[in-house]
Amino acid sequence: MKTVATIFFIIFIGTAASAQDRNETVKVETIEMGIVTETAASKKIERKQEVTRLYRFKNSRVKKELSFATKRNSPKMA
């Protein structure tokens, strides 16, 4: 009886859902934009001379920062 009621309920809901009349058409507002054919003048890039440091070894600062040791890293005698 439970299965018959379930099948009847599913068929009833399916029929009711398909019987809905939806003729609503959604209109979307569009925006017209023209094509720009003029180009702007290019800007001059100012070049600044900056001083950079040269290290003797590549990535020496990075290696120094990554090789830090804390007090808890040292071995202890038991």
Results as ranks from 00 to 15, higher is better:
48 K>Y: 12
16 A>R: 08
73 N>R: 12
57 F>R: 11
9 F>D: 00
41 A>Q: 11
11 I>S: 09
77 M>K: 08
13 I>P: 00
68 F>K: 14
24 E>N: 07
29 E>Q: 06
53 R>I: 11
52 T>E: 04
42 S>M: 04
55 Y>D: 05
22 R>K: 08
21 D>T: 03
71 K>D: 02
17 A>Q: 10
23 N>I: 13
33 M>Y: 13
76 K>P: 00
30 T>Y: 09
1 M>E: 02
57 F>Q: 13
56 R>N: 04
48 K>I: 14
58 K>W: 12
10 I>L: 15
38 E>D: 13
20 Q>V: 15
61 R>H: 08
10 I>T: 11
76 K>F: 11
1 M>L: 10
7 I>E: 03
3 T>I: 10
66 L>H: 00
18 S>E: 00
20 Q>I: 15
12 F>E: 01
49 Q>K: 15
40 A>N: 13
74 S>A: 09
34 G>F: 00
1 M>T: 04
18 S>R: 15
11 I>L: 14
62 V>D: 04
21 D>Y: 14
19 A>I: 07
29 E>T: 07
33 M>E: 10
61 R>G: 01
76 K>I: 11
31 I>A: 03
58 K>G: 02
3 T>F: 12
11 I>P: 00
10 I>W: 04
5 A>L: 11
5 A>M: 07
33 M>Q: 10
4 V>S: 03
53 R>W: 07
76 K>R: 15
36 V>K: 00
72 R>S: 13
51 V>M: 06
65 E>M: 09
8 F>M: 08
25 T>Y: 06
31 I>P: 00
70 T>H: 06
5 A>S: 06
66 L>A: 12
40 A>R: 10
78 A>M: 10
69 A>W: 03
27 K>T: 02
31 I>W: 02
10 I>R: 07
52 T>P: 01
66 L>T: 03
38 E>V: 09
71 K>L: 08
33 M>T: 14
35 I>H: 00
23 N>K: 13
55 Y>E: 07
52 T>Y: 13
46 E>T: 11
15 T>I: 03
50 E>V: 15
73 N>W: 12
61 R>E: 01
30 T>D: 00
31 I>Y: 04
6 T>Y: 15
6 T>F: 15
63 K>G: 01
14 G>Y: 12
66 L>G: 04
50 E>T: 10
37 T>R: 09
6 T>N: 11
44 K>E: 09
49 Q>I: 13
35 I>V: 14
47 R>T: 14
7 I>P: 01
46 E>M: 09
8 F>C: 09
8 F>P: 00
49 Q>N: 13
28 V>E: 14
65 E>A: 05
64 K>S: 11
29 E>D: 08
43 K>S: 05
18 S>I: 09
8 F>I: 14
39 T>H: 08
75 P>C: 01
68 F>Y: 14
